[in-house]
């Protein structure tokens, strides 16, 4: 086929289309872009933007990057899981599967779009931090911050698609992502920094899941106490490991149609069976 559209063109048009859908969905846009920003502002008000003794940095200097990570994870993990599962419920994935669009390009467009939205959320958060809350940005650690971001959002995008692959509906995707992200955010130092008196198992849980390995190096990259360029190869490698496992499992379990017993079509089929 000489006129077959190029993969690059398809990937770009899919990315644009996914972006458009995101920005036209007020709920998703609110929870991803505005909600973390709101928490950041509230924390800065409640705690006052002064130096937190045991951290050695100001409230804003800690929470701007930590809430930026929260926004980035919402944009990738939560959003991809929930929207993909809902699209499957509504038969959109089935429609896509019936077109010549290669499945990898479709999912690739979704991932790129999610990462672009995550990058935007991080930039907004950090810009507001710098302009209104005196957050410092250090040239020496920018490269490690950027790499931590890319590796982090790529891993969490893969995890989001894995959740979409294993849940049975959009509702359960919402439940699963919230029930995992919110507690983990508390354990992993996104909302609060666990004290040294916290039980050891809590520490073990936080260390096992990838969120802490995203937040810690990213926050460290904006800390004046960080020495050197801020590379945390252990955390980066650990996130890559999670990401690779998620990709393998997501490919293994991904479904393009809602399982039987879910969604309008199969309900109707069940009803027919009793008629005949």
């Amino acid at each position: 086929m000489p006129d077959r559209p190029s993969t690059f063109f398809l990937l770009w048009s899919q990315t644009k289309y996914q972006n458009k859908i995101f920005f036209r969905n007020p709920m998703a846009a609110f929870f991803t872009l505005f909600f973390p920003l709101m928490i950041f502002v509230v924390f800065s008000l409640v705690f006052g933007n002064q130096e937190i003794g045991y951290l050695g940095v100001t409230t804003a200097q800690y929470y701007a990057p930590s809430m930026a990570v929260f926004a980035a994870v919402s944009a990738t993990y939560t959003n991809l899981a929930v929207t993909t599962a809902y699209q499957r419920d509504r038969g959109i994935l089935k429609r896509v599967r019936g077109t010549p669009l290669p499945p990898a390009v479709y999912l690739g467009g979704k991932i790129i779009s999610a990462i672009m939205i995550a990058a935007m959320a991080v930039l907004i958060m950090m810009t507001i931090g710098v302009v209104f809350y005196g957050v410092q940005v250090y040239a020496s650690t920018l490269a490690s911050a950027a790499v931590t971001f890319i590796v982090g959002v790529a891993s969490f995008a893969a995890l989001g698609l894995l959740i979409a692959a294993v849940v049975s509906s959009g509702e359960s995707a919402t439940a699963v992502t919230n029930a995992t992200l919110l507690p983990l955010s508390f354990f992993s130092g996104v909302f609060i920094v666990p004290s040294d008196d916290a039980p050891a198992w809590l520490d073990a849980v936080a260390n096992f899941f990838p969120l802490k390995h995203f937040v810690e190096p990213f926050v460290a990259a904006f800390s004046p106490l960080t020495v050197g360029a801020g590379w945390d190869w252990g955390s980066l490698g650990y996130m890559v490991l999670w990401g690779v496992i998620a990709v393998v499992l997501a490919i293994r379990f991904f479904k393009w149609e809602a399982p039987v017993g879910r969604g309008g079509k199969s309900r109707r089929r069940k009803k027919d069976a009793t008629v005949t």
């Binding site: 086929m1 000489p2 006129d3 077959r4 559209p5 063109f9 398809l10 048009s13 899919q14 289309y17 458009k20 859908i21 036209r24 969905n25 699209q87 509504r90 038969g91 959109i92 089935k94 429609r95 077109t99 010549p100 669009l101």
Partner: peptide
Amino acid sequence: AVEEQLTVKEAIDVYGSMYP
């Protein structure tokens, strides 16, 4: 089964773009 947020034209454009 189409994204409700798209317009008629956008939906036809994006699906059309997949074919030679």
